[in-house]
């Protein structure tokens, strides 16, 4: 069933202005969200039609089309499109929201509602690198809280704040993260979503100092570091020129422990029969 069929009233409403007349009347975003205004000021992108053209070139539009073509219904492309936006801007600006709205024929409010829901879409420009420290219970109990505290002090910033000029070489945005699905390797942190396992406050401080110097230490598991924007391009599903990344290490000692132990001790699952039959086609009731 199409969206139109599910939400006929919505489809009939037409343009943004028609759908959200009150919003259109309120004037600029800057007036409504003064706190965000500073973050957007450098982009000079008011909410008028076509503003996204200043930021997003033809190559990005071509990629957007490619993303949309992956799905039976275009709106499904919104999450990857927002990753694509972050690959260009290092965050999701008002122009980025406008861009997605244009590509998918959605309202600004519909896209904004999605952007603000998800943690990975950053509302302020990110650093060259994003450092995410797991501070959920298990990692925290093994030192994750201490690691986060050490990095806050080292970088002189708090959650979702950036050391250095956002986007410039060596700039680092810090955040505390929820469980990163690597609990057997706790405590963990990520740089641009690549894993640095079994960290200590000292190793983490050493790591961000290297990042600030413009170095790119290799992750424990993952591909050689690039930057936040390149990572976001990959999250949008584009890997051109990065074929070697896939071979980056993925299995830690912990990952393989059970399989390794079984191999050492000669433990196996029961052998499969040579030709196990399938059940007959069940009779229709």
């Amino acid at each position: 069933m199409t969206d139109e069929a599910r939400f006929p009233a919505e489809a009939a409403k037409g343009t943004d202005e028609a759908r959200f007349p009150a919003e259109a009347a309120k004037g600029t975003d800057e007036a409504r969200f003064p706190a965000d205004a500073a973050a957007r000021a450098d982009l000079g992108t008011p909410r008028s039609n076509g503003s996204s053209g200043q930021v997003f070139g033809e190559d990005v539009r071509a990629k957007a089309k490619e993303i949309i073509a992956r799905y039976p219904q275009s709106r499904s492309a919104l999450l990857p499109l927002l990753h694509l936006v972050q690959s260009v801007e290092g965050h999701v600006s008002q122009a980025g929201i406008q861009f997605c709205a244009e590509q998918l024929d959605l309202g600004i409010a519909e896209v904004s509602a999605v952007v603000t829901f998800y943690t990975m879409y950053k509302r302020r420009p990110c650093g060259e690198h994003l450092v995410s420290v797991c501070t959920n219970t298990l990692c925290a109990a093994l030192g994750g809280d201490d690691i986060y505290a050490a990095l806050k002090e080292e970088l002189g910033v708090g959650h979702e704040e950036t050391a250095g000029e956002a986007g410039s070489p060596g700039s680092v945005t810090l955040e505390h993260a929820e469980c990163l699905a690597a609990c057997d390797l706790a405590p963990v942190l990520q740089v641009n979503y690549e894993f640095f396992d079994r960290q200590t406050p000292d190793s983490a401080v050493e790591l961000v100092r290297a990042l600030r110097r413009g170095e790119r230490p290799n992750p424990t598991r993952g591909a050689p570091l690039t930057n936040f924007r390149t990572a976001e391009l990959q999250l949008a599903g584009f890997f051109e020129g990065r074929d070697a990344d896939v071979a980056g290490p993925s299995a830690a000692e912990e990952t393989l422990r059970g399989a390794q132990l079984a191999a050492e001790r000669g433990w196996t699952a029961p052998a499969m029969p040579d030709d196990a039959p399938l059940p007959p086609v069940p009779e229709k009731k």
């Binding site: 298990l138 109990a141 609990c183 057997d184 912990e254 990952t255 393989l256 422990r257 399989a259």
Partner: peptide
């Protein structure tokens, strides 16, 4: 069937154990 058990925290050898 078999199941992947994920041991983490205060154990000597945390990791993935399929049992």
């Amino acid at each position: 069937g078999p199941k992947i058990y994920s041991l983490s925290g205060h154990v000597e050898k945390p990791g993935q154990y399929e049992a």
